[in-house]
Computed example of a mutant assay.
Amino acid sequence: MRFRTALGALVLAVGTLIAPAAVAAAPRPDSAEAAVYAAAGLQARGSEYYREACATALKPQTERLDINHDGRDEVLLFLASSPCFGPARGGNVALFMQNASGAWVDLLGFLPGVEVLPTGGEHFGYADLGVANPGGCMAIYHWNGSAYAHAANRAIEPGGCQFR
């Protein structure tokens, strides 16, 4: 899940790259990760995870970050490429935040992407996020007050967004 030199230069220019941690054992039942898996509709069957109506095992990975500077981590959920999500190249990512009632809610939807990068900007106190895809295009998302919405595409390699 690494990108070529162009993304490395972009990362150095705008901030820290957030990528999934190495595949780990199942999360503790009382952990935020376990709650996020459940909120994402993932169900454990033995040591593998599945979503309803999809027979393909998924390989969830998580990364924590604080997108709104409130001192509480949100959780990025990365899933390897799967026919469960259509023809996404590389993988899919969702961002979960715990709401006031304690439930974990998805702020992005499962987007095609393999890396998430705070771009340095903010809207309504939430970090702007770039979701990078194989092929050199990064979709930029801004917080609109209730969810993240697509704002633009940014080429991270020459010609990276020419067909988007």
Rank of each mutant, 00 (worst) to 15 (best):
G71A: 14
Y126W: 15
F96H: 04
R89A: 13
L117H: 11
K59G: 05
S47K: 06
A103L: 11
Q43W: 13
A53W: 06
E115Y: 02
A34R: 15
L65D: 12
A35L: 04
P29K: 10
P112V: 11
H123F: 08
F124M: 04
A21S: 08
F78Q: 05
Y126K: 01
S47N: 11
S47R: 03
G125I: 02
L111W: 04
P87T: 08
E115I: 10
A40F: 01
F124I: 08
L111P: 01
R28Y: 10
L79K: 01
G113C: 12
V11P: 06
E33L: 01
A35R: 12
C84E: 05
G130H: 05
P83H: 03
A25K: 07
A13Q: 10
Q43M: 14
Y50P: 12
V36I: 11
V116S: 08
V131N: 11
D66I: 07
A55F: 02
P83A: 03
L17W: 03
E74K: 11
T62R: 02
T16F: 13
V75P: 00
D66L: 09
L10C: 01
L117A: 05
L129I: 11
L77M: 09
G121P: 01
A132G: 13
G15D: 12
E115L: 15
W104G: 02
V23Q: 07
V11A: 04
D73A: 15
L42A: 04
A103F: 12
G41Y: 11
E122R: 15
F85W: 14
L107P: 01
R45W: 02
V105P: 04
L76Y: 11
G113T: 03
F85G: 13
A26Y: 03
R51Q: 01
G15W: 14
P83E: 07
N92S: 03
P27E: 06
P118F: 14
L107N: 04
L12V: 13
S47P: 09
L77S: 07
V14Q: 15
S47E: 15
A88F: 15
Y126I: 00
L107F: 08
V14G: 04
A39S: 14
E52I: 02
L65G: 00
V116F: 08
A34K: 11
L76D: 09
A39K: 10
G91L: 13
Q98A: 06
F124K: 15
A103Q: 13
A32N: 09
L77R: 05
A55L: 03
A32M: 07
N92F: 06
D70N: 13
A25F: 04
A132Y: 06
A26F: 05
G102Y: 14
A44L: 10
L108N: 12
A13N: 11
D30N: 06
L17I: 02
A80I: 02
F96P: 03
G125W: 02
A26W: 06
A24P: 02
T119W: 13
P60A: 05
A44K: 12
K59H: 08
C84N: 09
